[in-house]
């Protein structure tokens, strides 16, 4: 059976996590290739709407990565991301997005091994969860039953 190729949208902060991702590539670390990177200036600008839009547009997982607490280039942007993540995770769970599909991680510019590790772990988690679909995304009851039965 061919392996399920997941789509993971990663929002990486310009000052830490994006640099780490870049360095991970330059250092030729082994990484899964099913990520789509979106560079943002700060993890604090990733509105919950972006995350929900990513899932609604067909993403199987969303990773938001920013600087470690206290290291934010904009002083407290990453704390804003942290504050939102709790309620957002709850809402996503209620809407049928399984735990593990949304992650918030702190990855400093020097932590390229951690970046590769997070990406690999996340794509493995999502491969196990399978493609994301909410029961009502399909119109017909028979299709809904087969989708939820997977």
């Amino acid at each position: 059976m061919s392996e399920f190729d997941s789509k993971i949208i990663t929002f990486l902060c310009n000052w830490c996590s994006y640099v780490a991702a870049d360095a991970a590539g330059v250092s030729r670390m082994t990484q899964k290739t099913n990520t789509r990177v979106i560079r943002v200036f700060c993890s604090g600008m990733v509105d919950p709407g972006y995350v929900i839009k990513a899932f609604a547009s067909g993403a199987d997982g969303v990773l938001v990565a920013g600087c470690h607490p206290g290291d934010c280039h904009y002083i407290s942007g990453n704390m804003k991301a942290l504050r939102r993540s709790f309620l957002l995770e709850r809402l996503l769970t209620e809407l049928g997005v399984e735990k593990g599909r949304f992650r918030l991680e702190w990855i400093a510019a020097s932590e390229s091994p951690k970046y590769a590790e997070v990406i690999n772990a996340m794509s493995e988690d999502i491969r196990r969860l399978g493609p994301f679909s909410t029961p009502s995304r399909v119109d017909e009851p028979s299709a809904a039953a087969s989708a939820s039965g997977q």
Binding site: G49, I52, A56, K80, R84, L88
Partner: peptide, 15 residues
């Protein structure tokens, strides 16, 4: 102007 009311409320409450 709101994309998703739930996301907007998560954002509003969290701040």
């Amino acid at each position: 102007a709101v994309f998703d009311p739930g996301a907007k409320m998560v954002s509003a409450i969290s701040s």
